[in-house]
């Protein structure tokens, strides 16, 4: 914690970066994102296992980008997000500086995307146990049971799009749900519209989701939509041996192919 504060202070004092995006403690005692712009502000920064939020979502926000060069205190999800966003040409090496802390408390400062790639390759990128279990459980259900499971959940969706705002990969200028030529996805929060919205969101994140869980955490209705994304994370890993956010320079799964991609259902 001290090492982070020290380094953040240096960076701000020397004007190397204009803002440090990190974790702090909010009024209600919960961990939240804070934006430190003055050296004295660094005392508010914390970093421990409660810092699960994926701060990389802020990197593409216009208000933040305008400030100037950024420093981000990145957990593994955020680091992966950075690599994925880099591969999608959304962020550039010179625009930001990443700090992180290893599980045994060592401060990491990444000099570039390559550096992050090397670190990420040694990190655990598996899905959290709880979600893995849940996916297995769902897969064991009958099709009808699964359908019922999702209908029960999706019937609560109010189309607030918090899941979209929270997701660092949902950076589109205009989301497909707002597309009206034709209006493919029902505007109102009807069950079918909610269902279609989640298919769209998941398809759009296939091969790009870094399993940070932000979408589900954001959902006011506690709908476990991250399971859908995690399911595709597994599909992509199993079929193509690719994990999103591990390489800043590769084509995404859905925009590339192998001529011998395996499947067993095409007649």
């Amino acid at each position: 914690m001290d090492s982070i504060r020290k380094r953040a202070r240096e960076l701000l004092e020397k004007n190397t970066v204009k803002v440090v995006i990190g974790y702090g403690v909010g009024s209600d005692n919960t961990v939240r994102a804070i934006f430190v712009r003055r050296p004295e502000g660094v005392e508010e920064l914390i970093f421990d296992e409660t810092c699960v939020q994926n701060l990389a979502v802020y990197l593409l926000k216009n208000e933040i980008k305008q400030i100037g060069k950024l420093c981000i205190i990145a957990n593994i999800s955020a680091l992966r997000t950075i690599l994925q966003l880099a591969s999608e040409h959304q962020i550039h090496e010179e625009e930001l500086l990443c700090l992180s802390v290893t599980p045994n408390g060592e401060l990491l400062e990444f000099t570039g995307f390559k550096d992050i790639e090397n670190y990420i390759s040694s990190c655990n990128r598996d899905l959290p146990d709880k979600e893995s279990e849940m996916i297995k459980k769902l897969e064991k259900m009958s099709v009808d049971e699964r359908w019922q499971f999702w209908m029960n959940h999706l019937s609560r969706c109010i189309k607030c799009y918090a899941c979209r705002s929270a997701c660092p990969m949902c950076y589109c200028t205009r989301c497909q749900v707002e597309y009206n030529q034709p209006q493919w996805i029902t505007v109102e929060a009807t069950l079918m519209g909610n269902f279609e919205w989640q298919i769209t969101r998941t398809m759009h994140l296939a091969g790009r989701c870094v399993n940070c869980g932000e979408c589900a955490r954001a959902c006011p209705e506690d709908i476990p939509i991250n399971l859908l994304n995690y399911k595709t994370v597994l599909t992509v890993k199993e079929k193509y041996n690719i994990s999103a956010g591990t390489n800043a320079n590769i084509d995404s799964v859905m925009s590339s192919f192998e001529s011998d991609d395996k499947e067993n259902f095409i007649r």
Binding site: M151, M203, A206, D261, E263, I266
Partner: peptide, 19 residues
């Protein structure tokens, strides 16, 4: 080839959704 990738992912997803 691109279509095939799309179908592979799509099919697994909608199956998981109970379609």
């Amino acid at each position: 080839f691109h279509a095939r990738r799309r179908w592979i992912v799509f099919r697994e997803l909608v199956d998981f959704l109970g379609m």
